[in-house]
Design a binder for these strands. Sequence first.
DNA 1: CAAGGCGATTGCACTTGGTGTCATCACGTG
DNA 2: CACGTGATGACACCAAGTGCAATCGCCTTG
Lengths: 179, 179
Amino acid sequence: MDLFAERGYAEVTVAEIAERAGLTKRTFFNHFTDKREVLFAGAKDFEDSVAKHLAEADDDLEPIEAALLALTEAGLALAQYGDYARARQELIASSTELRERNLIKMASLAVSIAEALVRRGVPPGRASLTAQAAVAVFTDAYAAWTERGATADFWNLMQQSLADLRRAVDAAPSRPSGA
Amino acid sequence: MDLFAERGYAEVTVAEIAERAGLTKRTFFNHFTDKREVLFAGAKDFEDSVAKHLAEADDDLEPIEAALLALTEAGLALAQYGDYARARQELIASSTELRERNLIKMASLAVSIAEALVRRGVPPGRASLTAQAAVAVFTDAYAAWTERGATADFWNLMQQSLADLRRAVDAAPSRPSGA
DNA sequence: CAAGGCGATTGCACTTGGTGTCATCACGTG
DNA sequence: CACGTGATGACACCAAGTGCAATCGCCTTG
């Protein structure tokens, strides 16, 4: 992170990262499949945590509510990394490569949520859209949370994003007008 | 596409692609910034087309409706590439690298839609979520459309995905239970 | 027709990300 | 002490990209 902060993601070489860590380039690639992965080390843990919370969630919750609750609970563990989270977000935003990687991590998270929802008895098609919506809400709320000093109530932000999404999606059906 | 179909995306080298096209590796990189980009050549045109349709859409349409209509109208131009579209979708699905690239193209499309919505007077926060929802619906419908023989009525699939998304998102608000 | 002008193509050298293979090291165990 | 094992490292190698300068094809203009 120090190196990236000084010179930007693209200008730092893997060899340099390894050297700073007292290791070799080869050893770096034994731990991370990618240069990018170094910034997403915790992603799998987070995904697993969400899945775990979701599996344990109340049976009578609506799918979207259960997903958002699981995301929030797992997200609370991130609060301790407040400063790091902000720097990381900025870094990711600064590089296309990293934004790409972030997107696929979110997509993977959505798939994992969808699977957990299916296990709760939600039909697959609906589970997938529900999971995607939940992740979109989470991303939105998380961005707002890091932009302020990570001080705000996260659950609150989630509910607000969800409300926004509902407003966005709800509208009267329209006439076809095209093929 | 022939090369990719024969041996898979990862097993084909840029030099080979260039050679098959009667060009040089160097020339390839004059036309495409990336190996991946070769499969997303039309993405910018599509994005522009969507933005154009959205700018011309009826003023009294709800934002989500306007966005979906624009996506559908722009999408109809893709119908002529039916076979190619299917092969391309399969190829993308087969490679993580390509899925990543596809995701960022969709994200870029969403940003472009959001900007167009802002120009229509929609507040930025809501515009972004609306655009993301619209793109999610489009992706869902497009997947269904390519999986069948590209025979189905696309607008119909869009409306169905939208209905699914609405059902997914609509639920009674819940009690906080956490921080 | 000759002389330029200019964009597209190319050759070449070079950096960096990433991988396969094998040797070596550190360390805990019987 | 010998042994097995997992982590580290050295080394050679491939493919993706990039910078730079030369050249080619073609079109314009005198």
